[in-house]
Amino acid sequence: MDELTSIIIVLADSGPLTRECVEHALASDRPVEVILVDNGSDDGVPEALDRAYVGDDRVRVVYNRANLGFGPAVNRGAVHARGKWLLVLNPDCLIDPDTITRMGAHIGPHTGIVGAVVQDASGQVDPASRRRDPLLGRAIATKLGRGGGIDIAGPLPAGAEPVEIVSGAILLMPRAAFETLGGFDETFFLHCEDMDLCRRARDMGYQVLLAGDVQVMHGKGGSSRHRPVFVSRHKHRSMFIWFRRHDPAATNPLVRAVVWLGIWAHFVLKIPGQLLRKKRR
């Protein structure tokens, strides 16, 4: 358990919690390096962290000088990684010293991805911690409040549990599995890239596991609050890409067209509320 873990954190005007995220990461009880990949931030945080850790070879800042998207940024960070394991971590997530050790304890020869239970400061668990593939039938069941939907009800496991999707806020992967999968699919600019990665991992015979005994605090949406419409547009675009690639229902041209119209109508209807909330902030 003394192998190096490379922690990849993507920044995009992610805010002051990023500093705390890095501090928590460096306090890990196992050897780590932190690779900060900046997607053209204007808040000065990447540069401040670069200066703060200039004498610490465990921290490296990679500047993209433009917003390349989440998945592409992780892939560029992985190029610089030296660790046997990769931990993809959101900049508003705070890990404990033993988080990586406890997640890593569940990695076996066929494990591709290990996720954790993501929760807010009040202890409320994010449903994205474990989900089923968002197939059309399941999405409809979720909207109607019926069982068999995307979200998985019931108590969390005491240990590791095979699931279809874990939250992309924190993902631990053997570097070999990440490279076999080709990293994140860069067609996804933002959102759904974690669902795509989990699906491709399972399709290649890897296990996707939820470490139900590991909880991680997630601040939620540091950069999305500044650009809600921008983020929402890419989220809806990614939803359709995932549907088109992975849902058997997408083979029907009529169904595909109806889903496309529904996704973009939903995007348009959400814009007024998003702009109003941004103005109030």
Rank of each mutant, 00 (worst) to 15 (best):
G148L: 01
D213S: 11
I152T: 10
P134H: 04
T5N: 09
T101H: 11
V59A: 03
E47V: 14
V37W: 09
F70C: 02
E3T: 12
A250R: 10
V231Y: 12
G154V: 10
M195V: 11
G83E: 05
L17M: 14
D56S: 06
T101F: 07
V10R: 06
M1P: 15
L49R: 02
I140E: 02
S14A: 10
E179W: 00
M173A: 10
K143I: 05
I170P: 01
F188Y: 15
N64I: 07
L87V: 09
L144S: 07
V214C: 06
V268N: 02
A250W: 10
D126F: 14
F178S: 01
L11Y: 03
R175W: 08
P272E: 06
R200K: 13
R233W: 12
V74T: 03
V32F: 04
A12E: 05
I100T: 08
L17D: 13
V255C: 05
H226M: 10
D120W: 04
F267G: 01
D247S: 06
D120N: 11
S167C: 12
G71D: 04
G44W: 04
G115H: 13
V231G: 00
V74E: 02
D126C: 09
I9L: 04
V166H: 03
G69N: 08
I95Y: 07
P248D: 05
L197F: 09
E3N: 04
A176H: 08
G15A: 02
A121I: 13
E164K: 01
H246W: 14
M103L: 15
E193S: 04
P109L: 01
T18A: 12
I150A: 00
L68W: 13
G55N: 14
P46G: 08
I170F: 10
R138M: 03
R58K: 09
V62N: 03
E164M: 01
G104E: 09
R225D: 06
A73W: 00
G55Y: 07
V54L: 09
A139N: 05
I100S: 01
K84L: 10
A257G: 13
R65T: 07
V62M: 00
D133W: 04
E179T: 14
R130P: 01
D126T: 03
I95T: 14
D2V: 12
G154K: 10
D96Q: 15
V114P: 02
D151H: 14
T187S: 08
R233S: 00
F70N: 07
A48I: 03
R19N: 08
A25I: 06
V125Y: 02
N75V: 07
H106K: 09
A48K: 07
L254N: 05
A105W: 12
P134N: 05
F188V: 03
V118M: 15
D196H: 12
N67T: 00
A52R: 15
P157M: 06
V10E: 04
R102L: 09
A201I: 09
V37I: 12
V54Q: 10
V255D: 03
E164I: 02
L26W: 08
I140P: 00
R19S: 11
D56Q: 06
G205K: 06
I170M: 11
V125A: 00
H234F: 14
V259L: 08
G108K: 06
H24T: 15
L89M: 09
P174W: 02
Q124W: 08
E179I: 07
D38E: 06
